[in-house]
Design a protein around this nucleic acid. Structure first.
Lengths: 216, 216
DNA sequence: GCCTGTGAATCCATTCACAGCT
DNA sequence: AGCTGTGAATGGATTCACAGGC
């Protein structure tokens, strides 16, 4: 499947992006989409769309475009999101609850199979999706037993790094960190830090630039 | 202050990143940091740190390094996060509540000054930070009156685009969208979409690649 | 004619390597 | 001696432009 081993990092992020308008087109019964149309929907260059896809194969038909259903299937294959990923959530405050109930996760095959919280008062409480909150000390056994592949951290700042270390030690291969601090990467475990203030700083920078008069 | 008008997009994202270890160093009373040390903490190349900063001025001392406090001050000036930004939250489900209480926002000068929710049952309810939930129809007047600059959307998918349009029409200049759908950008209003499944797709792709045997 | 797939060209970002200051 | 600041070199990613197939 893979043709070239050197695939730009930005490419795989965009490939993920392409799937969102495709899902919409699919549900509106659109059969075919051109690179130009898809590019417009994602605000990128049409050649970029074609080049990105060409890293992985030839999915289009010349003179016609790309079959919506087929392209979506291929993209899911590329991203390995054509299967279920088993996830654990740690920390069930507001953020954790929001993630557990997040419609996009289940829709795209990301399934929470276990939930942990450091607060003994929360342990035993049922979640809307049928899970029961477990204690942190059960992490080592349950991660293995339930074959959890991805850990999602939504604890408070103080516990986040310790939880990450526990998850990594228990065999979790990837972590999505939604806690307020950045997690140091273990080499056995991929980490993605979600940090809203980076997005806000970005917006602030661009707003600030607009306000200011052009430098003479 | 700005020296060169062409500053890489990636640079401003990293500049934001640099501020996090700097805050830590500041609170641990470290006075000086070298580009090498800072680079290590952020997992980037030392030359990258120096080049990024050099776009904006000369903040270091040759032979010594960068003063921690001064550099942090300069970075905040660059990002225009040396002042308070007035924000509105729309949607107070779990995600909205998590954002309102998020410690990093207030710590970095991002302040919620008003809260809206589409659910009439929630209107009038008090939040922990002293705000009272308002109805959506108050958006046009309150956004102007309270001089809100940034809108944060945490509604369900169905309402998100309409809310974005209302915010933009009311004069909000930037939107951080944490709802489950991507928002179409208005030209009068910058939009940053936060999408956890892009992060998960990324992790899934890299995990998938590791599992697979090398292509022959 | 239309639209994909892709080498070549361009553009942009990162890294190197050293001059310059303390 | 040590570490920044930066032009030059390298390395990637994006876009162009057209050949190739429907």
């Amino acid at each position: 499947m893979l043709r070239d081993p050197k695939i730009p990092d930005a490419t795989i992020e965009r490939i993920s992006l392409y799937s969102r308008p495709l899902e919409k087109l699919l549900s509106s019964e659109t059969l075919v989409v051109s690179s130009e149309k898809l590019a417009e929907l994602c605000k990128v260059n049409p050649a970029q769309v074609r080049k990105d896809l060409s890293y992985f194969g030839e999915f289009g038909v010349r003179g016609i475009g790309y079959g919506v259903r087929d392209l979506l299937t291929e993209i899911k294959k590329i991203l390995v999101s054509d299967r279920e990923w088993r996830m654990a959530i740690v920390g069930l405050g507001n953020m954790g609850m929001a993630l557990v109930q997040h419609e996009n996760f289940s829709k795209r095959g990301y399934r929470f199979v276990v939930a942990f919280d450091p607060d003994p008062g929360k342990v035993g409480a049922p979640l809307t999706n049928g899970l029961t909150i477990r204690a942190l000390k059960e992490i080592p056994s349950l991660i293995k037993e339930l074959e959890v592949e991805v850990g999602v951290i939504a604890t408070q700042a103080g516990q986040a790094q310790a939880v990450a270390d526990m998850l990594a030690a228990a065999g979790t291969k990837a972590i999505l960190n939604c806690s307020p601090i950045h997690i140091r990467q273990q080499e056995s475990c991929l980490v993605e830090n979600v940090d809203f203030t980076v997005n806000l700083d970005n917006l602030a920078y661009h707003l600030g630039k607009k306000d200011k008069p052009r430098v003479p």
